[in-house]
Design a binder for these strands. Structure first.
Length: 157
DNA sequence: GCCAACGTTGGC
DNA sequence: GCCAACGTTGGC
């Protein structure tokens, strides 16, 4: 059973264009340091799950691409790198605290920005639209995925 | 820069 | 376990 997710990335860190430029349009989703978000990657995601690629902390936050989960979970290497902003001194290689998955961009879309998302009643309960939501990874209900796919103009399941 | 909302930390 | 203080996220 395929699940769907929304994953936030700051375009200054890794934009959808950056991801597209990577080999196989695939990037390791480094830097998640929130347990709930980590647990979604560790326990919830399967290879092939649908991903909405979202730009956050930028001029026009919104959904900018369709992607998929492209690996099973594995340790985020940046947690062991003292020069990385994501370094976590309390995490040991024999017991990694932070896991990630690879994400492959399938296609770039127009920017389906927040005001447009909010304008659709069918997306009222989309987790990322909920007030105070700060989670960088949130599950997406199948009906929300369908609505968003349609808005993005894809021949989508 | 502001601020609401939430997560984490640490004293007790 | 409680909770105040603090830090972070992220839209505006």
């Amino acid at each position: 059973m395929t699940s769907y997710w929304l994953m936030k990335s700051e375009p200054g860190e890794c934009s959808v264009d950056d991801a597209l430029a990577a080999p196989n349009a695939t990037v390791p989703w480094v830097g998640v340091r929130n347990y709930q978000a980590r647990n979604f990657m560790r326990d919830g995601m399967r290879v092939g799950d649908g991903v909405l690629f979202y730009h956050s902390s930028c001029a026009e936050p919104g959904i900018v691409g369709i992607a998929q989960v492209a690996s099973t979970p594995y340790p985020d290497p940046t947690q062991f790198d003292p020069t990385s902003p994501y370094f976590d001194a309390k995490s040991k290689p024999e017991e990694p605290r932070w896991l990630l998955v690879d994400v492959q961009v399938l296609r770039k879309t127009r920017n389906l920005a927040l005001p447009e998302l909010r304008a659709h009643e069918a997306l009222e309960d989309l987790v990322v639209l909920r007030k105070g939501n700060r989670l960088s990874i949130t599950p997406v209900e199948p009906q929300h995925w369908r609505v968003i796919s349609k808005l993005l103009g894809s021949p989508e399941s």
